[in-house]
Design a protein around this nucleic acid. Structure first.
Lengths: 180, 180
DNA sequence: CGACACATGTAACACGTTACATGATTTG
DNA sequence: CAAATCATGTAACGTGTTACATGTGTCG
């Protein structure tokens, strides 16, 4: 997130309130609106780290603005970040953690939980598809939503794997090395 | 994570060091070993929140153990957590954030970055497949690794979508509402 | 007057993560 | 003796998140 805000500043000096407008213009339809407080927190941290500077700009009527500008250090950090290899998607999704939890408890209703999770995924997928259609063709929003949809589909496939196991054998798992 | 540890305690009272052994027995092949420090931090927080209690158990020779036990509150919290609807996979993957960053900068080498990202994903997928084969058939490890693989595949599909766009039009994105 | 948009900010919390400190006991 | 193992812990950091405080000017 910090780098997203840094990139937004890199598009031209701004102050917090307009930064929120920029963010929302780009991302609100896919990610929701950003909490204005978070902008000031994040920008404060970026400034602390020397990636941006700020300058107070008084205005005739309205309260003073604090205009942020990216520094050389910031531009370099951004550049570096863009070229770093990205991390793989986290292997610890919320869904996966909960099913792991169920397994650890030897809780029986795994099948039920899996079914419920699948329902929710399907539901989410329907919603995402609806949003995708409403989003402009070729828009960033469309692309972001498609990304989400693909990951939800991945979870559905994973649930299929789980189901196969649950059908095949009584206990789904076995490699815990004998420790209780 | 806190709930994973809580579930491990729910399998029977333990102390930190053995908790690490349990965790590693279940998860190290898919998630790597846990840092021992994290266990004490997490257990401390669980205790602070009343989800576990601890009791010092002196030993003949070795240093004293601090044995954790789950409380009623903890058992309830765990139960509740298991039945909560899980969150959708985060729509803000590291990869996605970086490509968004590239877009915001109007950086030209999007194609290059996409190609590099694809290489890394393919590479990761090969590694995961290798690990899956090495993992026991039907093991938890196998299931976790398959989950990761599916999400990497989702990212690859997303990269395909991106590529289609990059081929189709000069600028990949357009819905930023006209704000700079 | 009161509500609303503009504008900035802070304090606090949760969570994960790691580097480091401490000390005892066993083993080579 | 030195190193490894057992065992516990803490201080600090990074990051995201939100609830709240504060103030001005405009408009109905």
């Amino acid at each position: 997130m910090r780098f997203v805000f840094l990139a937004l500043v890199a598009r031209g000096d701004t102050y917090g309130y307009e930064l929120k407008r920029r963010y929302d213009a780009w991302f609100s339809s896919a990610w929701g609106e950003v909490n204005i407080g978070q902008i000031y927190v994040t920008m404060g941290r970026l400034q602390r780290d020397g990636l941006v500077t700020s300058q107070a700009v008084p205005q005739a009527t309205r309260p003073q603005r604090k205009v942020f500008a990216i520094t050389e250090l910031g531009a370099k950090a951004l550049e570096d970040w863009l070229h770093e290899p990205s991390e793989l998607p986290s292997s610890k999704s919320d869904l996966l953690l909960r099913l792991v939890g169920t397994t650890l408890l030897d809780a029986t209703p795994v099948r039920v939980l899996v079914a419920e999770h699948r329902q929710r995924c399907l539901e989410a997928l329907r919603m995402l598809d609806g949003q995708v259609e409403r989003a402009g063709r070729g828009s960033l929003t469309e692309l972001l939503l498609q990304g989400s949809a693909l990951h939800v589909q991945a979870e559905l496939r994973w649930l299929d794997l789980l189901d196969q196991r649950l059908r095949g054998q009584a206990l789904p798992l076995s490699d815990h090395g004998g420790v209780p």
